[in-house]
């Protein structure tokens, strides 16, 4: 397997305290510049898999991000490298204003407040939301919230973006705008979605999760066809 994988996962196993075997020997690689769609039924282990990538959960097996093994002492570095955009933007936009929220990550990286707000402003510009910096997140539309949530992650200057069901609360124009935005972002992406059309438009390939393991890989069309996933 190529050494340059941004995400490298081998033989990952995880069992919840209630005994459910959520991950059963997963192997996965994400290469620089790639966008990979993660498909599969609810409860197949997709979210559990994601939560291992930045150490929110830890099971058995090997995971490394940009060559750094995911373990307790590397977590600050790992969490800067891999940015998570959560399904529900309300869970991610918890600070009182858009600017405070986008600066949250940079401040955690130890940046001075002035630098952090500069970084936040730049990230907001990148997603086209610089006009909203003084607003309260709950006054934004779903599409705007998603953009701000992405800005909050971009402000950490990550190498990888992980997007969990980004289209859930979006109307068709919001969905289209998100697609355009994501296409402009140079980071490698991991896209978990039920929206196969969105995955086809954005992802280079797909993996299919079922019962805690990857059961198919290939182009999005191929995987969707093979797994009856349309």
């Amino acid at each position: 397997m190529p050494k340059s994988s941004l995400i490298r996962v081998r033989n990952l196993r995880f069992r919840y305290p209630d005994g459910t075997q959520a991950l059963d020997g997963v192997a996965f690689d994400l290469l620089p510049g790639e966008c990979v769609a993660v498909l599969g039924p609810n409860g197949s282990g997709k979210t559990t898999f994601l939560m291992h990538l930045n150490g929110l959960l830890s099971g058995e097996g090997e995971i490394s991000i940009c060559g750094i093994p995911v373990q307790k002492n590397t977590l600050p570095e790992i969490r800067q490298k891999i940015g998570f955009v959560f399904q529900n933007s309300d869970d991610q936009l918890f600070m009182p204003t858009v600017l405070d929220d986008v600066a949250f990550g940079p401040l955690n990286l130890g940046m001075a407040p002035e630098q952090a707000s500069d970084r936040a402003r730049r990230a907001l510009e990148q997603v086209g939301m610089q006009h909203a910096q003084g607003k309260a997140p709950y006054h934004l539309s779903a599409g705007q919230k998603k953009r701000v949530a992405i800005a909050g992650v971009l402000a950490m200057e990550p190498a990888i973006l992980v997007l969990d069901e980004p289209t859930t609360f979006l109307d068709p124009p919001g969905r289209r705008a998100l697609l355009e935005l994501l296409k402009t972002l140079p980071q490698a992406k991991l896209l978990v979605t039920h929206d196969v059309g969105f995955a086809m438009d954005l992802a280079d390939r797909a993996v299919f999760f079922d019962q805690g393991n990857i059961t198919a890989t290939g182009t999005v069309e191929h995987v969707a066809e093979k797994c009856g996933w349309r």
């Binding site: 929110l56 969490r79 529900n88 309300d90 869970d91 405070d100 949250f104 955690n108 992650v153």
Partner: peptide
């Protein structure tokens, strides 16, 4: 559940137990 998700999203953006605020 929402509170737990918020906590996860804080950790994912490098939260290490203390809120740093803009001035």
């Amino acid at each position: 559940g929402a509170a737990e998700n918020i906590h996860r999203s804080m950790l994912s953006r490098g939260f290490e137990g203390h809120f740093h605020l803009l001035r």
